[in-house]
Design a protein around this nucleic acid. Structure first.
Lengths: 146, 146
DNA sequence: CTAGGTGCTAGACCGAGGTCTAGGTCAAAC
DNA sequence: GTTTGACCTAGACCTCGGTCTAGCACCTAG
């Protein structure tokens, strides 16, 4: 089977999406360019469709909502003349990703720290829980909640 | 008001969570260490609680599910002796974040490319849509739609 | 001819994570 | 004393993104 004209199942395989999700995406208007159908009404995806879907997957992975992808798809569908708006949309997402990256790194720092701390803690034997709330009062401690 | 003993509203302000969400988190067991109550049953958060919540926010931001945070909180609540498990949990999340970072960067590459492409496109005037499906042969377009 | 695999649509269902409402307590302000 | 505003609980509600089902059509192999 040539690369021209893939069934939904094949597309599911190569995009990693389920066939259900593929149909959902189509209904939600994520596809730029109408998916062709064969004589009996089955979807026939072009290589370009698959490429677009692959991008959609990346967009989703990076947190772009379906609605936004749909908007972008609409713009692409409408063709020349709205490039500025597409650019806006992309820039916005670019910004978001950058932000996310920063936040993730921030969190990773925290985790790295904690991990290191626990590793040390475990290696050295118990020498104070690295992540314990300060025990309230030493007097009234009936059992070590820790 | 000293930093010791914050109301839920105050905690909401400094964590960025809503009071609703704070109560949700508590119900969901995200809090290591029980939140104190004043005489009339209102929550009184310690500085440590807030610190923990701040971490929770980071965990959430980085995609850790409530259930996992809850598990971690449970371990911390249970106290010394389960550090290995906490470490596992943290390492797992560390791995996930690293993965996410890679994916985000990957997507950012794509976006950067597209953005650059559109910028060029716009600056140079129309010279081919950077993101258009190849127009099908103008001659025959079979249009079969259910 | 029949079975199995794949596809179709429409629409129900689900889990996660929040958000909001109803109905009530309390304390300080007017 | 009443009003105001922050808080309480329990539980309904919402969005998002996906998954699954029912009931049917088609095609190819045995």
């Amino acid at each position: 089977m040539a690369d021209q004209g893939l069934s939904i199942g094949q597309v599911a395989q190569r995009t990693g999406l389920s066939v259900h999700t593929l149909r959902l995406y189509e209904r939600a208007g994520l596809l730029a360019g109408e998916v062709q159908r064969d004589v009996s009404g089955r979807r026939v995806y072009s290589a370009w469709d698959v490429e677009w879907l692959t991008n959609c997957v990346k967009f989703r992975t990076s947190g772009m909502p379906l609605a936004t992808i749909s908007r972008l798809a609409q713009l692409v569908r409408e063709g020349n003349g709205n490039e500025a708006e597409r650019l806006d949309l992309l820039r916005e997402h670019q910004r978001r990703i950058t932000e996310q990256l920063a936040q993730l790194r921030d969190c990773l720092d925290l985790i790295d720290l904690k991990v290191a701390s626990y590793e040390q803690h475990l290696a050295a034997g118990v020498s104070g829980d690295p992540w314990q709330q300060p025990q309230p009062a030493p007097e009234e401690r009936r059992h070590r909640v820790g």
